[in-house]
């Protein structure tokens, strides 16, 4: 016996696992950003479905999903700036190249 909530939660679970797989397999920061957005979308869908299909307050659930969207926008902005900095400093945005945390790389492009 399945209910509506189960169906929606399964979709959000699928979104989250797809995003996780992308996060693991992608090589560049931009691809990982795309995967993270997928996962955040799944989280929002789960929140809204759970608030709508249970006796919980639906207004609170939808507002929480709105906050998730706002956080996703803020996160995308910051990640874009970080990608710019990494690109400027290393010339690449692949994760294998970008593994130095030291403040000034020994022979950086600068």
């Amino acid at each position: 016996m399945t209910t509506t909530l189960t169906l929606f939660l399964l979709v959000s679970l699928l979104l989250i696992s797809i995003g996780l797989a992308g996060l693991v397999t992608r090589r560049t920061l931009v691809g990982m950003l795309i995967s993270v957005e997928l996962m955040l979308n799944g989280a929002g869908l789960a929140i809204v479905a759970a608030a709508k299909c249970t006796p919980a307050s639906e207004v609170h659930g939808q507002l929480a999903a709105l906050f998730v969207m706002g956080l996703a926008a803020a996160e995308a902005t910051l990640v874009l700036a970080m990608i710019l900095v990494v690109q400027r400093r290393f010339g690449k945005v692949t994760l294998d190249e970008v593994s130095i945390i030291r403040s000034s790389p020994a022979k950086g492009p600068h």
Partner: peptide
């Protein structure tokens, strides 16, 4: 990547399917 795709499905999927209908009411 395959592990990352399958593991959440295997862990959380049965949890959702088995537990959710007890508390869900549709409005």
């Amino acid at each position: 990547g395959l592990f990352a795709f399958v593991l959440p499905l295997l862990v959380l999927g049965p949890l959702i399917v088995l537990n959710v209908p007890k508390l869900a009411t549709v409005q």
